[in-house]
Write a protein that binds this DNA or RNA. Structure first.
Lengths: 341, 341
DNA sequence: CTGTTAGCGCTTTCAT
DNA sequence: ATGAAAGCGCTAACAG
């Protein structure tokens, strides 16, 4: 891998100057002005030799590696989180940095390994990401340098990037209100654990609050709230069946995530009900399946890519503490209409 | 990030030995035997100081970085490919290596950037991955060092890791045969482009061959083959409708991927047909939704994690050229039964 | 304004 | 059996 590369000494020799001079020119140092002609010669030599600096050598001297560590509990390999990495990758490239990716899988030994690997390589900063939006404990060892939390907060009040779930909740409710839904709006996916324990979820409580406050402000309240042990499709299915067994059928259902909505669709389909003719469905996340469903599911999108970008921007451009809330845009598809009534 | 770290000199001083001795002990050099007591002292000193070697300094000397570049066209941020990275990450960790991840997004400028970033950092090897199993052109610049192709082949005959799609096709067909399906097996997802152009897909042709050969060997042939412009859910939906419009309904349908199968499920649901009672469905990929569907979709799983592992094993342990075919296990869920007849 | 020199932290001859 | 010294390629003091 890349042997026989031209070194700075080669460039300097060819340009007929010292290494120092070459180094300064190549790094665009302002302070010391070499002759314009010297600049030309150095650039030409570098060009001809295909010179590229050796990062290891440079870091040894400068203690900068142009490398960012992306550490996640498990997010890196999750369907949801591709966007997080994608965004971080793009923003890193724009700033001439590169990403070292690591996964702890929630395992202490793995985390230890990740941290050592990172420290040994003298990365310039760490992005610590969580799969589910939540509060977490950052290992003290990485606190020695710049850290940004992605999709997470921590007791230490580190700078962090989060999706704006509360605003998303509000938008979802507003959308339903705007279509004329009032007293027959149901909610699927209430979950005490998620709502109470910030180490499990920050999203549940925020989404719920956004929905509730908006509805309340309009003088409306939810006609039903179904709890689910998890936010999986089978729970959405069961919850929707529960709802359909009641005497009065809801005109609209808000699901706490797309997976629940997926299950709800199944139950609706089996019951011979149509969306949005009989019931409107609205949800959160914008999982890829939201677009595969018939009709397409309207949902507040987790802005993964934006979040990933933000994280490296904050890390590298250092913009204070935040927290930075990234808006969750509502993807309008065809699952919402005015109530049949 | 990690300033004030103890250096080898600190360890040596504390152990009352030279840097040389300390280095040798810490690296477990065999040739030269220092006294057992010297070993003890060095280890103790390193332990007490929390010594960790500086990777940059070491690489400068050894030209090894314990870092692998994972370059992909776009796979890194795709729902499908999480497993590829996960497997590579696990295998890397086991070998004390770390992954530098990069995405070209099929863009020449990005690829150029990725290559330079990699070369500048003197990575020990490159894993070049593709999202869709296909043949691709490896940029010559990275041919200077070890390279393994992941989910791809190349004209240069580089070592590569691929899913065993042909065998998977055979298993799918065998499964149907074993259930008693014979002359009413249909196929959804034929696609001339994918089947003909290895730069687009290697999977289409292999899966088809596996299916055909197995069926032929049993004296059976497909009762219908529906073409699709792409392998998306809407195409699966349309294809299934086409099938249902025919005079004789198939007893089983093989879909070239889960997305098509997802669409087929929708069409079947709308037509009031049940799976597997009326029609069995079998597919490829094992996308997460396969488990969310009702009934669960039986499908030949792309062994992403295994493939990712294999790639780094081959890269680091150097085991010849391959190609290495990784088996695609059949996930048996509830979408297959004996024909109603 | 330019070049020489001294390391960054580590491994590796080569003497002792 | 152990240590001194020489770099790996680069940048930053410091002279000239």
């Amino acid at each position: 891998m890349g042997r026989d590369r031209a070194t700075l000494a080669d460039v300097a020799r060819r340009a007929g100057l010292s290494k120092t001079a070459a180094s300064m020119v190549l790094n665009g140092r302002e302070g010391t002005r070499l002759s314009a002609e010297a600049h030309q010669r150095v650039f030409a030599a570098a060009e001809e030799l295909g010179y590229r600096p050796n990062v290891a050598a440079r870091s040894l001297r400068t203690r900068k590696t142009a490398t960012i560590a992306f550490v996640s509990d498990i997010v890196a390999t999750t369907r949801f989180a591709g966007g997080l990495i994608r965004g971080a990758l793009d923003a890193s490239r724009e700033r001439d940095h590169v990403l070292l990716i690591t996964e702890t899988q929630g395992d202490a030994a793995f985390e230890q390994y990740a941290i050592e690997a990172i420290l040994d390589r003298q990365v310039d900063g760490v992005i610590y990401a969580a799969m589910a939006t939540r509060r977490l404990a950052v290992p003290p060892a990485i606190l020695g340098g710049p850290v940004v939390l992605l999709n997470a907060t921590s007791p230490e009040q580190l700078p962090c990037v989060l999706p704006d779930d509360e605003r998303a909740g509000a938008m979802v409710a507003e959308t339903l209100l705007a279509q004329g839904h009032r007293d027959r709006i149901a909610l699927i996916g209430r979950n005490r654990q998620k709502e109470r324990d910030p180490e499990i979820s920050l999203a549940a409580e925020a989404r719920l609050r956004g929905i509730r406050d908006t509805l309340t402000a309009a003088g409306v309240s939810l006609c039903a709230e179904v709890f689910s042990p998890e936010w999986l499709s089978e729970h959405g299915y069961a919850a929707m069946r529960t709802l359909l067994d009641r005497p009065t059928r809801p005109s609209a259902v808000i699901c706490m995530n797309d997976r629940l909505a997926f299950g709800a669709y199944q139950a609706l389909g089996e019951a011979g009900l149509t969306i949005p003719g009989d019931i409107s469905v609205l949800s959160f996340d914008d999982d890829p399946i939201a677009g595969w469903l018939r009709p397409g599911l309207s949902t507040a999108a987790l802005p993964h890519e934006q979040m990933g970008r933000r994280a490296v921007e904050i890390l590298l451009d250092g913009e204070g503490k935040g927290p930075w809330l990234v808006p969750m845009p509502l993807r309008r598809r065809r699952s919402v209409a005015a109530p049949a009534d």
